[in-house]
Design a protein around this nucleic acid. Sequence first.
DNA 1: GGTCATGGCTAACGGCGTTAGCTAAGATGC
DNA 2: GCATCTTAGCTAACGCCGTTAGCCATGACC
Lengths: 179, 179
Amino acid sequence: MTDGTGATGRLTARAREIVAAARDLLEESGPAALTMRTLADRLGIKAPSLYKHFPDKHAVEVELAAQMLEESAEALETAATRTPGSLEELARAYRTYALSHPHLYCLATERPLPRASLPAGLEDRAALPLLRACGGDLDLARATWAFAHGMVVLEIHGRFPEDADLDAAWKRGLRALHP
Amino acid sequence: MTDGTGATGRLTARAREIVAAARDLLEESGPAALTMRTLADRLGIKAPSLYKHFPDKHAVEVELAAQMLEESAEALETAATRTPGSLEELARAYRTYALSHPHLYCLATERPLPRASLPAGLEDRAALPLLRACGGDLDLARATWAFAHGMVVLEIHGRFPEDADLDAAWKRGLRALHP
DNA sequence: GGTCATGGCTAACGGCGTTAGCTAAGATGC
DNA sequence: GCATCTTAGCTAACGCCGTTAGCCATGACC
């Protein structure tokens, strides 16, 4: 188990404050509200001062993506520990986490993974619980991940019909992928 | 079969030229390159003139999303006609279309569906081939759609490991969902 | 106590979407 | 055939955005 931020040591204290404020802003008001000026405002400083701590806005967003990856990994690990081998519980944890942090989930997900800037091993760690639940079948794990990600983003972006029974679609997909 | 644009009659000729230029710009250079100024440039006019034809940039993007929906529906219908009942061929058509137009696919997909501005019935039409291939099982169709969408967007955004065998993951997922 | 790094600041640049207001050209009505 | 109105362009400008340059106070270090 980690410190929950994954950035202690990698970032200065002030940089972590900035990331925390950025996260609040993003989660409360969406990606359009996450501007360098409003972020600085929330910290009681001016926008250019942010560049003493991060080279550009993208670097802040990468930090947010890393948080999301780390936290979702933790959520999956917790579920796997509580109910070993249950893909249903893993899926529930994934869905719950993503829908609790929709803006963060999309920010972290809808662009290339910044592997170079990520803590070593984080990507594998996030994938491991699902891979184990799939008995080491890499193809099945990837297919299941795609299914879960697809369900979550389609739901977040309101692509399903209003009256769609998403619980039933989840059940049906999981039953097929993990009989 | 339609005219392939779906907008004849709904849009003026000039508006259709603008959408066509916007599409070229988007597909060639990505969403960041799609600005009102560069779009106007490509048409040999100035940015404010675009507002004589569309109320705002979003309206242009909605037109692009409608094109994507229409064309992917056509691709699926063609596949369903050529190889009736084959989910493999449907999936291949979906993947091929999305990967041939990645920026357009993401633009149309990574935001709420503008149902009010869409041609009537288009959403249902796009969903029908898959629903039929699933024997009318709505839950299975939605699960399969989520799987396919997840595979495509994760591939587009480079989220899978470099060496991942995506063909195998597609096969594995489809085999599970449609035994 | 002088030196230097830290972390603020103001002013400004170029690009964005968008609005206001002007105008040339063509269609329309009598 | 002329007046009128609509169309579709234009320039200028506004308020945002990310970002850079350059200045300055504070406090740590030898």
